[in-house]
Simulated assay, not measured.
Amino acid sequence: MNSLLNFVLLKTFVAVAETGNFTVASQHLNSTQSTLSQQIQRLEALVGQPLFIRGHRILALTETGEVLLSYAKKILALNDTFFMKMTGNAIIQTIRLGFPEDLASGQVTPTLAIFMQDNPNIRLEVTSGLSRQLHQRYQHGELDLIIVKQRKGEFKSHYHWPEPLCWLTTNRREHLNTDSVPLIVFPENGLYRNDMFKLLDIEQRPWHITYTCSSLAGIQSAITDGLGVSLLPVRAKLPQHRILTEEDGFPTAQEMEIAMHFHTGSDTLNALAQQLARQLGRL
């Protein structure tokens, strides 16, 4: 039974169990899927029972697997703590974060800097991108903590804040072309894009796309220079912009929300992510 304390097998098991996917787990461990599969088979042979229910797209744990996962996390955490105490060297942990471009600065970065100062053996790996893409990567186990924009209640989240929207145009011109509304939009699958189309269609106002950009700064600049109008968060309004209201023929858009998601496991990495989440939640 002492063979069960093979830390390599336990680490592989935890990675596969938490991601539910051999491909993602192999990327986390810098190994191959075949190697991980063989290690899981060895562990199952030692336990004498299957640890995963096969045949599903996402691997699910058996009852034995769930029990082992709880113990495996504790064993690995104790192992890390022991060697930290004996050697005086803390093990480097990397927390993978995902933020939309406009949230990856401002109040967020100072909080990240303070967290790194308080936890010198933590590495933060920040990815910026569209909210839907970041949420997909989070669901696949590729990110540990994300702050994304979503429709109110679209996905259950640990922290969320209101995100009111408004129509914006340049303040350099008094009147808009009423024949067809020129729209400045994010690429397909970007937030607010389809909302603009639907809102104007309801009002039976003709529209056309004049500018597409994946960068918020690019969208803001295009609005400033008078290339068209766009639907953006109120906080994205610049001094060079003017808000368009129902009096201008632009219907009020439904409020969205900013949501923070993070994994809630009991291992060291998840505990650190939860600590960071609490600090970001106070912003």
Rank of each mutant, 00 (worst) to 15 (best):
L4G: 11
V8C: 13
V16I: 14
E18P: 04
T19V: 03
G20F: 07
V24T: 10
A25S: 00
S26R: 06
Q27R: 15
H28P: 10
S31N: 11
Q33R: 14
S34Q: 12
Q38D: 11
R42H: 15
L46N: 08
Q49C: 06
P50V: 14
I53Y: 15
H56A: 10
E63L: 02
E66L: 05
E66A: 05
L68P: 07
I75T: 04
I75K: 02
N79E: 10
D80M: 09
F82M: 10
F83I: 12
M86N: 15
T94C: 03
I95H: 13
G98L: 00
P100G: 11
D102F: 03
T109I: 02
T109K: 13
P110M: 09
P110F: 10
L112S: 06
F115W: 08
F115V: 06
G129Y: 14
S131A: 01
L134P: 15
G141P: 03
G141D: 09
E142T: 05
L143T: 12
D144K: 02
Q150I: 13
K152I: 10
K152V: 14
K156P: 06
H158A: 13
P162N: 09
E163S: 14
L165A: 00
L176N: 01
T178K: 13
D179R: 15
V181I: 12
P182D: 12
V185P: 14
R193K: 12
R193M: 01
D195K: 03
D195N: 14
K198H: 13
L199Y: 01
D201C: 08
R205M: 02
W207C: 15
T210P: 08
S215Y: 03
A217T: 09
A217E: 03
S221P: 03
S221G: 15
A222V: 08
S230W: 00
V234E: 13
K237P: 00
Q240N: 08
F250K: 03
T252K: 09
Q254E: 04
Q254W: 13
M260S: 02
H261P: 15
F262Y: 05
L280T: 06
